[in-house]
């Protein structure tokens, strides 16, 4: 019976993703007739610019950042042994964001290197929160409060830099809520390589990460090199979050919601949960972005706002449910 549920999940998700992808290419602020849309595939014309230079990179960016954030969330939840954690909640995303905006504002670096700087910020933030949650045995709610504090510090840094550097302020708004508009292929080239590598690494350590959820003692006695797996996990999380942040800014909630939804269908074994979350995450982001694009067309609502509208209530429900359980 369980196998059916998993198969059903994969089939339904794949269909939703394909439909979303099609609609994202088909519809947008510029209205294309069906004939115009199909003419895009025939060669150089206005429609092909719209479909292949504007909409396709944006769709790919949505899929990539959805995969990155949801897999990062899945790993962070395993590392902190806390289902409420996600890269945006514990401050990993804003750590990456602070570094990105710092280098954009003060040091004129090529955009290709942004993921590298984002990685440094994400790595430091995730090291901090993981060490804290394990050493102090943080409870589910206190880890969220700690994340809140970390986020507040990083966000203050981000706002500060955007105030003193006016050119940074222009893109600050879109960056801080998470947006996919005006994405080019150049923006996603380096992140896509990092994300693919990160997901492969994540799958390689998925069994050990799953075992670690039984606690360090049990994992160690089962032959898992606990420290090494954790450090690898932190590095992967940072790679993925950093890439996502350099594509779409501080997009929240994906890393929280996607693993939860996927877990309902495939369970908590990371071997299955990582691919399932990746699928769910990419749907969440592309679908939210598509909705943001068409609901208020021709104006383009950042994907982060739609994600927050879905994510915030979801987060509250989890918090209340978890709170009652741990009281």
């Amino acid at each position: 019976m369980k196998i059916k549920k998993e198969k059903l999940f994969i089939i339904i998700s794949a269909v939703i993703l394909l439909l979303t992808a099609f609609f994202s290419l088909r519809y947008g602020s510029a209205k294309l007739t069906l004939a115009e849309f199909f003419s895009a595939f025939k060669g150089n014309n206005t429609s092909s610019v719209i479909v292949f230079q504007l909409r396709l990179p944006r769709l790919l960016a949505g899929i990539l950042s959805g995969i990155a954030l949801s897999v990062a969330g899945t790993i962070i939840q395993a590392l902190t042994d806390n289902d409420m954690a996600s890269p945006s909640i514990v401050g990993v995303n804003s750590g990456a964001g602070l570094m990105v905006i710092f280098f954009v504002a003060f040091i004129n670096v090529s955009a290709y290197f942004l993921p590298v700087f984002a990685f440094i910020g994400a790595f430091l933030a995730s090291l901090f929160i993981t060490a804290l949650s394990r050493k102090m045995g943080l409870t589910k709610s206190s880890i969220i409060l700690t994340g809140l504090a970390i986020n507040a510090v990083f966000s203050a840094g981000i706002s500060f830099i955007s105030l003193i550097d006016e050119s940074a302020l222009v893109s600050y708004h879109a960056f801080s809520v998470g947006s996919l508009s005006l994405i080019t292929y150049g923006d996603i080239l380096v992140p896509s390589i990092i994300i693919v590598t990160g997901v492969i690494l994540a799958l390689l350590i998925s069994k050990d990460l799953t075992i670690i959820r039984m606690g360090d003692t049990v994992a160690g006695s089962l032959g898992v090199r606990v420290k090494r797996v954790k450090v690898t996990g932190i590095i992967i999380t940072s790679m993925l979050s950093a890439s996502a942040v350099s594509i779409c800014g501080l997009l929240g909630f994906v890393g929280l919601i996607a693993p939860h939804l996927a877990k309902l269908f495939v369970g908590g074994n990371l071997k299955k949960l990582i691919p399932a979350s990746a699928l769910t995450g990419s749907i969440l982001v592309t679908l939210s972005d598509f909705l943001g694009k068409i609901i208020f067309a021709p104006s383009d609502l950042p994907v982060g706002i739609i994600m927050a509208l879905i994510g915030a209530p979801f987060f509250l429900i989890l918090l209340v449910k978890g709170g009652a359980k741990n009281a």
Partner: peptide
């Protein structure tokens, strides 16, 4: 160990 975790699998 004495305190057994309840992992989600």
């Amino acid at each position: 160990p004495q305190h057994l975790k309840s992992p989600p699998f």
